[in-house]
Simulated assay, not measured.
Amino acid sequence: MSQVFADLKEAATDQYVNGELPEWLATPVLAVAGNPEKYGEKEYLVEILLEQVKDFDVYAEAGCCKWAYDHEDIARTLRWLEGEGV
């Protein structure tokens, strides 16, 4: 298993337990992290998802500049992983 999947599991768990990642996002992210056989050929998207989860902020769109990732970014990457909207 690639390290990116373990890192994604760790980041998603941390953001869910200690951060503000909602359960409705944490659940599919953890499903990706736990399924490297299905998503191994899309590891580049898993790497993007990892960065988005690590830098997740509920208020990413607030203010004049976007400096973090929000739920829409993560949801979009999850759709790409499922082959939707690519």
Score class of each variant (00 low, 15 high):
E72G: 12
L50T: 04
G34V: 07
E61A: 14
N18T: 09
L25R: 13
W80E: 13
V29P: 14
L21K: 10
D70N: 14
G34C: 05
D73R: 02
D7P: 03
L30H: 04
T27W: 04
L45F: 15
Y59M: 13
Y44M: 08
C65Y: 03
G40C: 02
C65V: 03
L49W: 02
D7N: 12
E23I: 04
S2L: 00
G63R: 12
V86P: 08
W24G: 06
W24P: 03
Y39A: 12
G85S: 03
A31I: 05
Y44R: 10
W67A: 11
P22S: 01
R76Q: 07
Q15W: 06
V29A: 07
C65H: 01
P28H: 09
L8Y: 11
T27Q: 13
L25F: 14
E41L: 07
L25K: 12
L50N: 01
A6G: 03
N35G: 10
E20L: 13
E82G: 08
V29L: 06
G40I: 05
F5H: 03
Q3E: 15
L49V: 05
V46H: 08
Y16G: 07
A11C: 09
E51R: 10
D55Q: 14
V46L: 09
R76D: 05
F56A: 02
A31G: 13
K38W: 05
V58H: 08
Q52F: 06
F5L: 04
H71K: 09
A26P: 08
A6Q: 06
D57K: 15
A68N: 02
E23M: 04
V53Y: 01
C64E: 14
V17P: 05
D57G: 13
Y59W: 11
V58Q: 11
D70L: 00
Y44W: 10
W24K: 11
A75L: 11
D73P: 00
K42V: 10
L21T: 10
L78Y: 01
L25T: 12
G40M: 04
L8A: 11
G85W: 08
K9A: 14
L81D: 02
P22L: 01
P22C: 01
K9M: 05
L8P: 07
I48K: 15
D57C: 09
E84H: 13
D7R: 04
Q3G: 09
L49N: 05
V53G: 03
V17Q: 14
Y69A: 02
E43Y: 01
F5W: 01
E84D: 14
K38H: 07
A60N: 06
L8C: 11
I48M: 11
Q15E: 14
Q15M: 15
K54V: 12
A62V: 15
E10L: 11
D55A: 15
D57I: 07
G85L: 13
L81A: 02
K66C: 06
A6Y: 04
C64N: 11
C64W: 06
V58C: 05
Y39N: 15
N18Y: 13
A26L: 07
Q15D: 10
A68R: 01
H71R: 03
R79E: 01
F56H: 03
I74P: 00
L50K: 05
W67D: 12
I74H: 02
G19I: 05
E61F: 09
V29F: 07
D14A: 15
A60E: 08
